[in-house]
């Protein structure tokens, strides 16, 4: 069996795998939607329950306005029908906006934050892991890995205020909180950094382990024996193999960075989707919660799929079953 047939066979397998996953995705999403829809409705209290008790007749009129007086099955089907048309409905809490508008307004901010954080995490993590591996078992290695462990173990609600205190109040390098979009990137640095550090720590450890694995491989010994300079050995021959664990981790990590930024969004007051999700749930803003669940669900499924595919492209040893 020649190389080309292996490649073709693999591509066939890969193609089939991607198709299966693409079929699975909407099914998973639909399950998620259905489950969240009913869980949300069964939570005690409703979107229009206020401390000041609303007159029953007026409350009835408000409920009718949002179809909440209809049977649950009717509400579910009407939600699914609207969803197929791409309409997520009006927000119950934010009375002047639709869920589509809220997501359209907030998701880009979360993605922007997530992307910057991913870049920071990848850059810091890969660089630290690389140095640690090259300077294996030296004080540089120990120092960097200690930092990595600290980064992994410190929660963002500790890192965030620490960064604010040092970089904004003490040194006054970056704004303390707030958000001005891409026009003023200085606002995004600290939140992105607090979001990135735990991930950078994990990436550093994965990178180091991956590199050490490859540095001891036979082909690297061969490369060194041929008399290649160490930089070429590292950058041409080992990084590609050493980075594999990082790649497999990056997919879920990006999804987590984009969808898991709610604490950072709160500390730095970034108008992202994460806070809409949490507050939507607390306010029983049914439609808003459903909208965010769908977006988050789709993002997580998508990034996991992408990372699996990327892994196969980089590492020919991977088999799709």
């Amino acid at each position: 069996m020649g190389f080309r047939t292996i490649l073709r066979k693999l591509q066939g397998d890969q193609f089939r795998y991607v198709v299966i996953r693409l079929i699975q995705a909407p099914v998973v999403l639909l399950l998620l939607i259905t489950l969240s829809f009913f869980l949300m409705r069964f939570a005690p209290g409703g979107p229009f329950m206020l401390e000041q008790r609303t007159d029953p007749v007026i409350e009835q009129a408000i409920r009718a306005k949002y179809l909440l007086d209809k049977p649950l099955s009717y509400q579910y089907w009407s939600f699914v029908k609207d969803l197929l048309r791409g309409d997520l409905g009006p927000s119950f809490k934010h009375k002047n906006r639709t869920v589509n508008e809220i997501i359209a307004a907030t998701l880009p901010h979360s993605i922007y934050l997530g992307v910057i954080a991913t870049l920071l995490a990848a850059f810091l993590g890969i660089a630290a892991g690389l140095f640690s591996a090259i300077r294996h078992d030296t004080s540089v290695d120990y120092g960097l890995m200690a930092c990595a462990v600290i980064g992994i173990s410190l929660p963002t609600f500790v890192i965030g205020p620490l960064l604010q205190l040092s970089f904004s109040i003490y040194w006054q390098w970056f704004p303390l909180a707030g958000y001005e979009g891409m026009a003023k990137p200085s606002y995004i640095i600290l939140p992105a950094l607090s979001l990135a550090l735990p991930f950078a720590g994990r990436i550093a450890r994965l990178m180091r382990a991956g590199m050490l694995d490859v540095l001891n491989a036979d082909f690297v010994r061969t490369a060194r024996a041929k008399g290649l300079p160490e930089t070429i050995v590292i950058f041409r021959h080992t990084i590609r193999g050493g980075i594999l664990p990082v790649v497999s981790y990056l997919g879920p990590a990006i999804a987590q960075l984009v969808t898991g930024s709610l604490v950072v969004e709160k500390i730095f007051q970034i108008p992202g989707l994460g806070r809409e999700f949490v507050e939507g749930a607390l306010n029983r803003d049914y439609t808003l919660v459903m909208g965010t669940v769908i977006v988050y669900g789709a993002l997580i499924i998508l990034f996991n799929l992408l990372s699996d595919i990327m892994y196969g492209v980089l590492d020919p040893r991977v088999k799709y079953v």
Binding site: P161, Q164, L165, S168, L176, A177, G178, K266, Q269, R275
Partner: peptide
């Protein structure tokens, strides 16, 4: 009008003179 719900952050902004 700022909508900052993290009052600790808002307090730090206050101390900062913002």
């Amino acid at each position: 009008v700022l909508p900052y719900d993290d009052l600790d952050t808002a307090y730090r902004l206050y101390l900062n003179g913002d």
